[in-house]
Design a binder for these strands. Sequence first.
DNA 1: AACTGTACCAACCGCAAGAAT
DNA 2: AATTCTTGCGGTTGGTACAGT
Length: 255
Amino acid sequence: MVRAPCCGIGVKKGPWSPEEDEALVGYIQRCGHGNWRALPKQAGLSRCGKSCRLRWMNYLRPDIKRGNFSQEEQETIIRLHETFGNRWSAIAASLPGRTDNEIKNVWHTHLKKLVSPNTSSREPKKKKNAGGSRSKKASEPITMQLDTDSENAMFVSVVSKAQSNSDFSSCATDSPTVSREISDDARGSFSSDAFPEIDESFWLDALSTDESAASVDLPPVSEHSNLLVSSDSDDMDFWLQVFEGVGDLQELSRI
DNA sequence: AACTGTACCAACCGCAAGAAT
DNA sequence: AATTCTTGCGGTTGGTACAGT
């Protein structure tokens, strides 16, 4: 079968400008994204639909949670990677607000180093930055601490001495509001400068009025837990506790 | 202060699956 | 049933910031 070329000549590539973001967000807010291929033309963008979709899904979506990954999220990724391998979308489905692309990046830049190199069998191929690099941050001593006493007894704390208060904040555990703050900060200049009119209410409105936006809402975490552990009942209790904890944090972060 | 190398992240590319015709 | 179209996914790359020398 012949696949139509994604991007024709004259289609812009590279980083998105604030104006383009604004056009894309504005269009999706008004009309949704029923047809990604037709969207760029209708929105007045010189981008291919694929690029628009990626930008929306990975950055502009209102439910994106930006900022550092909490220890719980990191641990969840590690454990889910044990189950799913490189099925990033499946892992992302269990981490509300996180994108597969972001998880993939975090895995390759941080978490992969935490697990045994032997687990690379799950990764079919890799050609770039295959170790041997002089690490500034991630190669700091890492401790995997199993907490057997606290309420979060099933969490394995992944702690980097250098990252504990830099790369990876403990936002989700320290304060449920911090992730929101980080998210807002991390949205960068366009949301606060180029998009002064887009505030929290905008995203809430977009979520409530745009059915397409609503379609990306993730089902309750507890539903995922059933799927996740269906093949490994030994982990059932673990994941129930993990996702209950994450779910609670998500709820709190919305307050 | 300048240079070099690494880490990080956003974005692109190609493939595959599912939907539509 | 076959073909075409669209979307979604995973792998990979390029640019930038920053730490180390």
